[in-house]
Design a protein around this nucleic acid. Structure first.
Lengths: 195, 195
DNA sequence: GTAGGGCATTGATGTATGGTAAGAAATAAA
DNA sequence: TTTATTTCTTACCATACATCAATGCCCTAC
């Protein structure tokens, strides 16, 4: 039984206890180890994932074999390939556990049924979508306009908790720079703070 | 009467003629000149804009005064600041006409009412949202992983028609490079094609 | 026609970030 | 504990792209 997720859906997702209980067929909770892969590039994404504990990431791999991190998903976050689910297309990216995690597998039916069942859930779901857009949009803007250093500072502000949990090379990958560059950026910042 | 928009809504948006006619209060068609500004940074966005003819762009201006183009909107495209509309927040960006244009001002009520009126429109609207996410997501991935040259090539593929209509410095701005750099990229590509 | 403003190109040079390689430090494995 | 493996740092050099400045090219205005 997905305890955390159930609470989350009832308190934030706008579902009643009764509604939620009608939907449990589409849910599975699993404990997975670090490095477990939930989705591979080319597969069609059938689930959203809700992280009850632990930490996931989604990332692409480009032609030259480099990874580019799209998103981190710590406790109480969702991660999936919306486009793959919605358009039934092969996914562009991978989803993987960075830590041992407890994850709710939410079959795509869940969203459909929940939307039919509850207009409050529907509103919640649209809010998620809109939030998602806002977030990606800001990221585009940062990538277009900001230096590596200010993108890093922005990251620290947005995800202070992740700083400690995520290896630096992944943060670098999220920022669109190399681990070496991030190391240098950090060195510069440190020296500035001592002046 | 917004002829093109009406057709568009009926053929693609899932509205019936009757439904559409109930919603015209929320619509206004305007002819505007090149350089007309529809939305400024800091304002709360009250409308989506549908381009019947002409060409719009949305863009941000960073602290150092540089413009960064978010989106081009030619005929039959929508442009707005979804986040500003949905969350009632001041907008991060500007929307402006690049050409003399005929534009439908769609008050935010339109979407709400149309969604209540027609479940087919609701589906259409969600499809728009999902498409939007897919698109921005791909752009993030390109910005993270691809060189200026391949981003330009990608742009040509995606928007062959815009190539001719949009000044190069704006394409450069969309790609996240300077006009000078784009000029050099083009020079390189041209020389490659003669070998 | 001439004048002026935006736009594109080009060259010279600067800067931020990348690539490579080595070593240090941390973490996991044995 | 010792050994491996991964991660982080640092130094040196390479490269992509930015910046600055000059020139020419269209435009449109007059």
């Amino acid at each position: 039984m997905p305890a955390t997720f159930k609470n989350y859906m009832i308190h934030k997702g706008g579902l009643t206890l009764q509604e939620f209980d009608q939907l449990t067929d589409s849910l599975q909770v699993k404990k997975v180890n670090k490095d477990h892969i939930f989705l591979r590039e080319g597969e069609i994404c059938e689930h959203s994932f809700f992280v009850e504990s632990g930490l996931l990431r989604s990332f692409t791999i480009d032609e030259s074999g480099k990874e580019h991190i799209i998103q981190f998903a710590p406790e109480n976050w969702f991660v999936s390939d919306r486009s793959s689910i919605f358009f039934n297309e092969p996914s562009d990216f991978f989803i993987e556990a960075i830590e041992d995690s407890t994850v709710v597998f939410i079959h795509k039916d869940f969203m459909i049924k929940a939307t039919e069942l509850s207009s409050r859930f529907m509103e919640y779901n649209e809010k998620l979508l809109q939030n998602n857009i806002r977030h990606i949009q800001k990221r585009v803007n940062l990538l277009l306009s900001a230096s590596a250093e200010s993108r890093y500072l922005n990251f620290i502000q947005l995800y202070p908790d992740l700083l400690l949990r995520v290896p630096q090379w992944m943060i670098a990958s999220y920022l669109g720079i190399t681990p070496e560059s991030l190391s240098r950026v950090r060195k510069d910042l440190a020296s500035k703070n001592f002046k």
